[in-house]
Design a protein around this nucleic acid. Structure first.
Lengths: 120, 120
DNA sequence: ACTATATTTCGCCAAATAGCGAAATAATGT
DNA sequence: ACATTATTTCGCTATTTGGCGAAATATAGT
């Protein structure tokens, strides 16, 4: 029960759902997601912590950055099905499209440049 | 997005999840669910309203009672998949088993007797 | 019409949560 | 060693939410 509730609570915030959608294109570091949503780094970090605790994202630290990604096929069924459901439900929505467009621009920009904007 | 969030928010409360599981055996009226969870009728009513607003349950009023039930196959895919996911994830949990056991007893008891206990 | 009963709505309180900025932590570069 | 940078943790505030009881609503019985 707790596991399911951790997942549904994690999925009940728009910015966390948008984060999962953004990660479909591959891993992102915290400051890239921060740039995408225009929220404070601490806020994004908290959201990622909630998603991570629910098992909906995995992270990897390298150099100064922490990269978050969606779990792969080896993840528990309950997690994979939840993610598939979100992906499917949000496909072809305006929110997803707008985020994807903005993310494309962010990915073309130099990473340190993105981070500098957030951490001053 | 709003539709998905209505669903995930509805699913992020233990009593609402338990309600959905309880309805697997067929429709129940408010006072039966109230008896099952030992909460105030107004509280249960609110929970059912949230589930209903998300499309996760349907209701039917007859005589003095309002019966709530799970939607059938004709429900939107997003709803059916969410319900399947919950059912599957909660199958074989202690909570579900205990509720099922208590529900069995409640269903054997006369409906007016159940309601009288709640509404005094 | 009046009473009884099942449910919902409303007003309130306590607990949980999203947001921020500041401070702490961890890793890199000088 | 020290400064810089990316992320996290902490403390705070505003908002949301779950719970209750009382009042309102709706329906059935007398």
């Amino acid at each position: 029960m707790q596991e399911l509730l951790a997942i549904t609570k994690a999925l009940s915030d728009p910015n966390r759902v948008r984060t999962l959608l953004a990660l479909q294109g591959g891993e992102l570091c915290v400051c890239q997601i921060t740039e995408l949503f225009g929220l404070a780094p601490s806020t994004i970090s908290k959201h990622l912590s909630v998603l991570s605790h629910a098992g909906l994202v995995l992270s990897r630290k390298t150099e100064r950055w922490v990269y978050y990604r969606l779990p792969d096929k080896s993840a528990p069924v309950v997690i994979r099905e939840a993610l598939d459901w979100v992906k499917k439900s949000m496909a072809n929505t305006d929110v997803a499209a707008a985020d994807a467009r903005k993310l494309k621009i962010i990915l073309k920009t130099d990473l340190t440049e993105i981070c500098r904007r957030q951490c001053r």
